[in-house]
Design a protein around this nucleic acid. Structure first.
Lengths: 109, 109
DNA sequence: TTAACCTATCGCAATATTACGATGTATTTT
DNA sequence: AAAATACATCGTAATATTGCGATAGGTTAA
């Protein structure tokens, strides 16, 4: 046991959960917020920005890259990261759809 | 090691990450979608709906309840769950703010 | 070429999550 | 009161995540 039983759920449910998982760590939220704030490629200063060890930072960056929400490209001696606008939009839309309005007047039992 | 270093991040970053964590499992997405679809209190049929063991289902429900996004109330011999509209709205707004538009024209390095 | 620099990956330890059977608890039915 | 019902909690095993030191890999500067 211990592994998520993905086969029990729909593709969409697994997809939303996977997106949420990519966001489920404050370091990754911090990275994304930083990239959005800069609205440009950020080369190198992410390790200083976060306060985590270089190896740990790299691992979080890898997860975000695997999720597709950021992209990195080698620029000389360092690597530059930026938001992948297309995937960002997908996240935005999927969460928007998920959080569509529920009847706020509903009375619970 | 192994524990998230929450002290390195802002309250908001930890909050968003915690919300995302609550959504980071397909079973919990399935539960929420089901409650939204019914738009009412759901008593009992969640275990059958999910296909997971009763103990596992109960555990996921507890996580959602701890996160505040659902509420449960005892109704006779069973427990009824429904979306907490207020918290749902908070989630919606927080994610909306987080996913505010980025300049889709940005050119990456 | 060598040294310096930056990032990725490996290996490991600590902690967290997922899953389920067994059992506990509370309410209703008989 | 006893049995039935429904959910929660406990205990445990399997797996995943988090974090970091050490090291490997690739690029630039000397």
């Amino acid at each position: 046991m211990g592994a998520t039983k993905t086969d029990l759920f729909t593709k969409e449910q697994n997809e939303i959960a996977a997106m949420a998982k990519a966001l489920a760590h404050p370091a990754r939220i911090a990275i994304l917020q930083y990239l959005v704030k800069k609205n440009a490629c950020v080369c190198g200063d992410l390790v200083d920005e976060l306060g985590l060890a270089q190896a740990t930072t790299s691992q979080h960056l890898k997860e975000l890259k695997t999720a597709g929400i950021i992209q990195g490209s080698i620029e000389g001696v360092s690597v530059c990261y930026c938001i992948n606008p297309k995937v960002w939009k997908q996240y935005k839309e999927l969460f928007n759809t998920f959080f569509k309005d529920v009847d706020l007047q509903q009375t619970c039992c």
